[in-house]
């Protein structure tokens, strides 16, 4: 999508393709500034300059809640922790469910029942079980990341060709070797997609989890508290940082995908 360049090469701003891409964001920014000037109310829509002022001094303390960078890192730590826990559970479970029908049947109905429940619906339970703090946030994040990783792992392992496995068996591979040298690398591109989607959802969940009562750091906390003080420019600046970090990680996942797993697309 956004990062895939069609045609390639250096595209100037006047190139029709580039032009089409930037025209809407530019229009939104200009429209925003005009409306902000007309409204002249910082508590509803602040002017661009005040949002940029927050963005361009990321190390400045905001209302005693810490600065943008430390809060962003706090959120990232939480999301990475929850994401790793989710991946650590979902990948082995997905592999064993895909490789064994009885394991699949044992877990499937329960997982199907839990899957449609949005992670945020777990917030009250999380608070009741883990109290206010890191544990309940990590719980919510891990729940959000778990299912996309699980489902893609299942898909990926099922897409491993029988020929690949049998060729290895003929050459004398043990179960362990088949798993490590055929199933895992064969399923890796799809598992990677699951990790990418899972990370995106985990990132959304962390911001929401940080809005839970009793939290005292993180980007979600920062924008929620800014609301209480009527600091709309901080809210918008915080949202922009959330969006940029999300895009950044997604891009990272895509780059690694193209570097390491291009065979999936090229193999025909």
């Amino acid at each position: 999508m956004g990062f895939m360049k069609r045609g390639g090469g250096h595209e100037g701003l006047l190139h029709p393709h580039t032009f089409l891409k930037v025209i809407l964001p530019l229009g939104i920014i200009i429209g925003w500034e005009i409306i902000a000037i007309l409204l002249n109310n910082e508590f509803i829509l602040p002017r661009l300059e005040s949002v940029f002022a927050v963005l361009f001094s990321p190390t400045a303390d905001i209302l005693g809640y810490g600065n943008l960078i430390t809060n962003a890192f706090t959120s990232l730590e939480r999301v990475i922790l929850g994401f790793l826990i989710a991946a650590g559970l979902a990948i082995p479970l997905g592999i064993s469910m895909a490789r064994s029908d009885s394991t699949h049947d044992f877990f499937d109905s329960t997982l199907q029942l839990l899957r449609p429940i949005p992670p945020l619906a777990w917030v009250p339970l999380a608070l009741a079980w883990f109290k206010i703090g890191l544990a309940s946030m990590v719980f919510i994040i891990a729940l959000g990341a778990f299912f996309p990783i699980l489902l893609n792992t299942l898909d990926g392992v099922k897409s491993v060709k029988r020929n690949w496995i049998e060729s290895a068996e003929i050459l004398g591979a043990t179960h362990r070797q088949v798993l490590l040298k055929v199933v895992l690398p064969g399923a890796a591109p799809t598992i990677w997609t699951g990790l990418r989607v899972g990370f995106g959802i985990a990132w959304m969940c962390v911001v929401a989890a940080e809005m839970m009562p009793g939290t005292n750091s993180g980007l979600g906390y920062l924008i929620m508290s800014s609301y209480n003080w009527g600091q709309v420019q901080v809210i918008i600046a915080g949202m922009i940082v959330i969006g940029l970090i999300g895009i950044g990680f997604d891009y990272l996942f895509k780059v690694i995908d193209r570097r390491s797993f291009s065979w999936r697309v090229l193999e025909r």
Binding site: E166, S167, A168, G172, K181, W263
Partner: peptide, 30 residues
Amino acid sequence: PNRKLGMIFQDYSLYPWRTVNENIAFGLEI
């Protein structure tokens, strides 16, 4: 499966994530 018997399938069962050398080396690695 027995090591005295090798098999070749109709649709090329090469491992697409391995180079040609790594594919040939697969059985030796195993």
